[in-house]
Design a protein around this nucleic acid. Structure first.
Lengths: 179, 179
DNA sequence: CCTGAATAGTTTAGGTATAAAGTAATCACG
DNA sequence: CGTGATTACTTTATACCTAAACTATTCAGG
């Protein structure tokens, strides 16, 4: 198995990506159990946070999706479950009947208020190993990375900056185990 | 809606977590379309990478799960689909009949060899905005963060370092929309 | 007004992920 | 040897997430 020799820059990018992925997976796992105590999931908590920071009239589902970087179909399901749990409520937009405005119910606000200290406290402990002096640079670097990806995406959508043709898309004639 | 006043350290942790999450989500999205051209997903590609770097006899499913930071049940499904696609093959362990060894089929090796340059190249472009001088510190910081989480988890499992009692776990008496 | 394009949300199909329960094989030890 | 605990994997139930197709509404011109 010749292991595809990476160039130095590619290797560095790969290591960075691996580290980024593992870090985010680890933190995700670390806070998951906390949410479980409130019968919540990470995604549901994220919706609560977004709505808690939103104006009183609430947010469109599309706005929630943008802030969470998830698709509209996903938001539909998320709000479905939160509505069923009585934490969020859908209201019709007064001027545009296509739009759904989501707001926290009193119950949702209560859950947010109660869980917030535990959540942010846990997060504080998780990140306690990162020295104060490293936090700003780290945050900046991650923000620039995110921005970079989004810019590349916007640019690549118009100009054909991807010369390589697409790979084989079919997958018939499945061979047996290689031995 | 009083917005739960965060302490400065909590706010800094929250910003870091938000930046980390958004960065990893962005990169994930960026490479997704590349995999789609090969009828692959990000998770499936990750399995191929792990197996490509593995010894010839292959890896146990549990080892794959450890490297990917996912549960065993997840690995079962992943390997199921890759096996069905003819990219991976399950073999019995010669000495321990509980163990399944997963290896790349010739077809799987071929797909890996073909997709690797495109993948690492795209990754290189994604991370091109991160200056060389920042990469090592960034990687180190992310690695320490991951380590920190895992240590905390191991420690917290034994000693009761989590004083706060669990929150309300029930969710009946759902109230109507708060207006 | 009418019609076609755009927009907001929902639905559907399929892959990803967990926790928890279940099955089969191995191991430890009396 | 046999039995209970452990280990490796699978199964089940549920939630997350995407892309793509669909519905309903609004908007822009003619």
């Amino acid at each position: 198995m010749k292991p595809y020799k990476l160039s130095p820059e590619e290797a560095s990018a790969q290591q960075l990506w691996e580290a980024l992925l593992r870090a985010s997976l680890s933190v995700r796992g670390e806070v998951r159990e906390l949410f479980a105590q409130w019968n919540l999931t990470g995604a549901q908590w994220r919706v609560l946070m977004v709505l808690a920071a939103a104006p009183d009239e609430g947010l469109r589902q599309s706005e929630i999706g943008e802030q969470m970087l998830v698709t509209g179909g996903n938001v539909t399901g998320l709000i479905d479950r939160l509505e069923e749990a009585g934490l969020v409520c859908r209201q019709a937009h007064p001027d545009d009947r296509r739009v759904v405005l989501a707001t926290l119910t009193p119950r949702g606000q209560k859950v947010y208020q109660e869980l917030a200290p535990a959540f942010f406290g846990r997060l504080h402990r998780v990140f306690s190993g990162v020295p104060d002096s490293s936090r700003e640079p780290l945050r900046i670097a991650l923000g620039e990375l995110t921005q970079n990806v989004q810019d590349n995406r916007a640019a690549g959508a118009c100009s054909g900056s991807d010369p390589g043709g697409p790979g084989p898309t079919e997958r018939e004639d499945v061979g047996p185990c290689g031995k």
